[in-house]
């Protein structure tokens, strides 16, 4: 198993927000985590990335305990995140943002190759490489955030709400890019509000409700599940 989360508990102050979470991701999979606002999806990703500390339980990547590492060490192992709200470095150029994505990488040839790959995937980023990231449109910033994540040469990419605030046509192209990234060998964990789209893309999914996993199934199974249909897919 590439990534295992075992009995993960997270507290913000005295408030427990994740109550013993269990999930696993196999190599090459696309796994989606669905849930309403405040269910703990982003907290889960932030804890995997080491920005939020767990109070008990463990996170294992290739059997290495991530929960004992600092955030920067986790990226170095090949776990990259594209955070919610994109969080590109607005007053730095597109090129600088991409190079920051490769901060843990030491092989210039590999950085060069990844940069070409990102530019090939998102040609608009090449055109705008000297512009400040803050001047890009929302869709372009999302592309930059994903590209920046890929520059870390990740084995697993955590994507938090990549469709947030984007026009439907852009969402479609972002999702097809995610499939492409997955085909190139990067395992994907996708947190999404747009459950239908996420389940169409994913192999498996988890449903998170107020800090607990309440359902776990293949994407097909979840798409057919009556409860998921009423709660997350708008009925019918």
């Amino acid at each position: 198993m590439l990534l295992r989360v075992e009995n993960l508990t997270v507290k913000y102050g005295n408030v427990e927000v994740l109550h013993g979470l269990n999930l696993h991701v196999a190599k090459g999979e696309i796994v989606t985590i669905l849930g309403a606002n405040g269910a703990g999806k982003s907290t889960t990703l932030m804890t995997i990335s080491g920005l939020v500390r767990s109070s008990s339980g463990g996170i294992f990547f290739h059997d290495r305990p991530l929960h004992q590492l600092e955030a920067h060490g986790i990226v170095g192992l090949g776990v990259a995140q594209v955070p919610e709200g994109r969080r590109v470095f607005t007053t730095l150029s597109v090129r600088e943002n991409l190079h920051l994505g490769a901060f843990t990488q030491t092989d210039p040839a590999l950085i060069r190759r990844n940069l070409d790959w990102v530019y090939e995937m998102f040609p608009i980023l090449r055109t705008r490489r000297s512009q400040l990231a803050g001047t890009l449109s929302g869709g372009e910033q999302q592309m930059l955030a994903i590209g920046r994540g890929l520059m870390a040469n990740p084995k697993i990419l955590l994507l938090d709400e990549p469709s947030l605030g984007l026009a439907p046509i852009l969402v479609k192209s972002i999702f097809s890019t995610i499939r492409e990234i997955n085909k190139s060998g990067v395992t994907i964990v996708l947190v999404e509000q747009n459950a239908r789209l996420a389940l169409k893309l994913a192999d498996r999914g988890y449903v998170l409700e107020t800090g607990r996993i309440v359902l776990e199934d293949t994407a097909k199974g979840l798409l057919a599940d009556p409860e998921v249909r009423t709660a997350y897919l708008g009925g019918v």
Partner: peptide, 17 residues
Amino acid sequence: MAIRAAAIDQGAAKLMG
């Protein structure tokens, strides 16, 4: 570059490693 990135968004800088 790391100093500039951390000044803009510390959390995002951590995610860059």
